[in-house]
Amino acid sequence: MTVYLDFNATTPVDPRVADEIVHYLVDEYGNAGSRTHELGQRAQKAANRARRQVAEVVDAQDDEVIFTSGATEANNLALLGLAPEGDKISRRHIVSTAIEHKAVLEPLARLDKMGFDVQLVDPGPSGRVAADDILAAVRPDTLAVSVMAANNETGILQPIEEICQRLEGHDLWLHVDAAQTFGKELDPLRSHRIDLMSISAHKVFGPMGVGALVARSRDYRRPPLKPLMFGGGQERGLRPGTLPVPLVAGFGLAAELAGKEQAARHEACLRYRSAVLAGLAPLQPVIHGDEQFTLPHVVNLSLPGVDSEAVMLAWRGIVAVSNGSACTSNSYEPSHVLTAMGVPDNQVRGALRLSWSHMSPPADWAEAVDRVRALT
């Protein structure tokens, strides 16, 4: 049996969450916008409950949760949705990092074409940007800072708490792409200095196709977002369209379970990490990024003398791993993340990402090692 080790790409739906989704697909199938009958009212209650469940994980208010199709849409709404405000107040400078997911980098590229000045901060070999460098880039005309909570390729946690503390008193807007840490690293995302936060359900054992933008009020003022789509006025007029109640309900339950079970899941992932590194130790892997800041369920590494594509082929039937971001493209491109970290080209070409969960079964690492050795 192949052991799935690509949880940063997507997670399976928790059986408890699947039951919730099916219930609202088959039994409670009302439209949350239909307020004239009981089925619609019950659908609205389910959506409201899910909004509360998501909000509680990050210590937000229910009405600060805007449901989207996922973190990519949330990133676009957060960044492009701020553009009209930037034009209005003549603040067209944005600070971000060179290791962001393409779901952030591509909206930033769009803003650049619109006349905004986008400044990307490099991380250095650790894979972690320095809060000093982020703050040094801030100018009087900075509209927003956007820093991911953890990198999707390396699992390196970024200094969100320190950035939040040091931005106290600044009136710029802080956006965090939290797709990889929502429900996993709880405290950093509870900072009320984070104005905008992007989340995907399918990274936390919920369904694909649903996520959220958390838009926190600050001093009783909501982030001045403008919608990217129009028609219907749902989600406070920022994200029109019929709410997918089954997906939203599943997302809500997945969020609640993640918050309640976070500590146990974290410990299980740490134990699995030890097994992964011990199993691959005979191959002398080169680990990318500072391990003290790495999520417990991720490792990015290169195996000396072998190409990642060859290793993935050799490991078929044993483990399913990745050599980059599954969310970016169907074709492999050299990692912009590892390149920004200064990783040598030969190691970039050989890089593999292994990501597991609290319920991952053991893998046959002895066989995996033998197969790699057969390649050299």
Rank of each mutant, 00 (worst) to 15 (best):
G127Y: 04
E153V: 15
F182K: 13
D122Q: 13
A130W: 05
N152R: 13
T181Q: 09
C164T: 06
G155I: 03
Q158D: 03
E153N: 09
H170I: 01
L174H: 02
L135K: 06
I163P: 00
L143Q: 07
V147H: 00
G127L: 08
V138A: 07
D133N: 11
R128K: 14
V138N: 06
V129D: 03
H170T: 01
D122E: 13
H175C: 10
A178P: 04
L167D: 03
D133R: 13
D133P: 04
A149I: 00
E161S: 15
A136Q: 14
E153G: 00
A137T: 00
N151K: 08
R128M: 12
I163S: 02
I160M: 02
A178H: 09
L143P: 05
T154P: 11
I160E: 05
D122C: 02
V147Q: 05
V145D: 01
Q158C: 07
F182G: 12
G183N: 08
D171I: 03
G127H: 08
C164L: 09
A150D: 01
A136V: 00
E161V: 13
S146P: 04
L135I: 14
E161K: 12
Q165Y: 08
M148R: 15
Q165G: 07
A178Q: 03
G127T: 10
A179Q: 08
V176K: 10
F182E: 12
Q180P: 00
L157E: 13
A150F: 01
A178M: 06
K184A: 14
A130D: 13
H175E: 08
H175L: 10
G124Q: 07
S126V: 09
P140R: 15
R128H: 04
